[in-house]
């Protein structure tokens, strides 16, 4: 099966498998085992394309990849990047935490009770369909331009998607597992905590990931539409002085942080909550 290039094999086939194909085999073998290699290849392709596009250049306002990286390093060391993140993270973390707790709680209640569903589902379906970006400025009329308004913007984007996914997760629990729990005289609480929530976990987490992604959108909208602060301020400021490499560095960094957060969440889920997924 494996083209394991052992010395005997090479000899037997008269050196048909030379050094380069052995290397190719090794890389192929490594690639199937290590998913991370594909991630690296994918990123390298993206960054190369970016570098080329920047050098052509497709627009005078579009920096190359390397310029952006050096701008990012510069901001990281001149002490502008970290304080900006500290500001951006406040409404983000509070908003996402509130949305996660409230959203999963409400979603589970809606999944378990028809009355709660009739009462709440229409509200969240409308909220999810509404173009939230248009509503963010409205928040400032009521809550001003402070932390509360920005946190609300995060919640407005993150909450509906978390609620609706949690609700769907509970509704799609395997009915046969619930019957099984009933047949062994499990109480309603045992049914909820030992069957429904564990079985719903993958979809709950999918909702949480979508909610966090939406939360990042929310905080950026808030910082660009309400008042420029944090990363939003870095972006606005560098654009205003035509410092495009720095502006792109700020944008790229927030994308990277968002991606890493989601990957981290997935890791936590697989590592601690779905033991059967750890063994392939």
């Amino acid at each position: 099966m494996h083209m394991a290039a052992t010395p005997q094999k090479v000899g037997a086939t008269g050196g048909a498998t030379d050094g380069s194909s052995t290397l190719a085999d090794m890389i192929a073998d490594f690639a199937t085992r290590r998913k991370s290699l594909w991630v690296l290849v994918s990123l390298a392709t993206l960054f190369t394309a970016w570098e080329i596009a920047g050098r052509v250049p497709i627009s005078f306002a579009f920096p190359t990849f390397l310029e952006t990286v050096s701008a990012l390093l510069e901001m990281a060391f001149d002490g502008t990047l970290l304080p900006a993140y500290a500001i951006t993270f406040q409404p983000l973390v509070i908003g996402v935490a509130v949305s996660a707790v409230l959203g999963i709680g409400l979603g589970i209640v809606m999944g378990l009770s028809d009355k709660a569903e009739w009462l709440l589902a229409p509200v969240f379906i409308v909220l999810q369909a509404a173009p939230m970006a248009a509503l963010v400025p409205l928040v400032t009329f009521i809550y001003g331009i402070g932390l509360v308004a920005k946190t609300l913007a995060v919640i407005m984007l993150a909450l509906p998607v978390i609620v609706l996914n949690s609700y769907k997760a509970v509704r799609h629990v395997n009915p046969s597992l619930v019957d099984m729990c009933r047949s062994f005289q499990g109480s309603r609480l045992q049914q909820i905590f030992k069957i429904i929530i564990p079985d719903a976990t993958p979809v709950l987490f999918a909702g949480l990931r979508l909610g966090i992604a939406a939360g990042f959108i929310g905080v950026m909208l808030a910082e660009l539409l309400i008042t420029p602060t944090g990363i939003g301020d870095l972006i606005t400021y560098h654009r205003s002085i035509a410092n495009y490499a720095h502006m792109y560095a700020a944008v790229a960094s927030i994308i990277a942080v968002s991606t890493l957060t989601l990957a981290g969440l997935q890791y936590v889920e697989v590592r601690f909550l779905r033991p059967e997924k750890r063994r392939k």
């Binding site: 597992l177 019957d179 099984m180 009933r182 047949s183 564990p198 079985d199």
Partner: peptide, 19 residues
């Protein structure tokens, strides 16, 4: 009127907890 300890059910689709 409901499930009881004197009866146990074996399900056609196994009904095993995958986790």
């Amino acid at each position: 009127t409901g499930p009881g300890p004197e009866r146990a059910f074996v399900f056609q689709d196994f009904a095993l907890m995958p986790w």
